[in-house]
Amino acid sequence: MSISNKKSALRQGLLRCHNCGYITTVLSTNTDNTPAAGTLNHCPRCDGELHARLPNSFQRTAALLCSAFILYIPANIFPIMIVTKFGVPEPHTIISGIVALINGGMIPIATLVFIASVLVPLIKMLGLSILLWAVQHRWQRNLRLLTVVYRLIAFVGRWSMLDIFMISILVSIVSSEALEQVLAGPAATAFAAVVVLTMLAANSFDPRLLWDRLGAH
């Protein structure tokens, strides 16, 4: 694919369908970048709704990100898993679970869990904050790098579910009341919510907002 004329499609009255990638022409757009009255509302090819940019992208991403930040606190404070051995309950938070793995000599698995349940959510939340900051303050430099950050966040998001899946397996398998019992703790709900909220936040962020500021004053 070759560059047509170094301008965005929207500035030339062309609009890409989010669903099927079909290019349509728009005569004019409202201030919120939706096609103005009298122009197309639905894609002629796939019949999906047409938007020049994802609707309310900045506000939605910011709201979802704030909720994720708040829920990240209970997710780390409360126990995510309660292991009862011979009647003695032993609560584990995300961090203490990783420490237990390190003490057990299982360094590779501990690293894996650390990356999936500590590093990935943090990178995602910080990365999205930087992206929102860049849009708000109209950064004009390193736009390519920021788009790479966006792609990384979108790719990496789902892998934090690792801890939740592991717990669901342990809970169902270790349930003989005689010796040992594993229960999921209150942090599991909070952590699952953090994962879903950050995934939704990444989905509602439109990286084209970064590029729209380029050269526009």
Partner: peptide, 22 residues
């Protein structure tokens, strides 16, 4: 307008930066 837009255009746009491409 409607008739015109039904005709496929020989363009693509980048989904992430909206650069117009041939």
């Amino acid at each position: 307008m409607h008739n015109n837009s039904m005709k496929p255009l020989a363009y693509e746009a980048c989904p992430q930066c909206d650069l117009l491409l041939n």
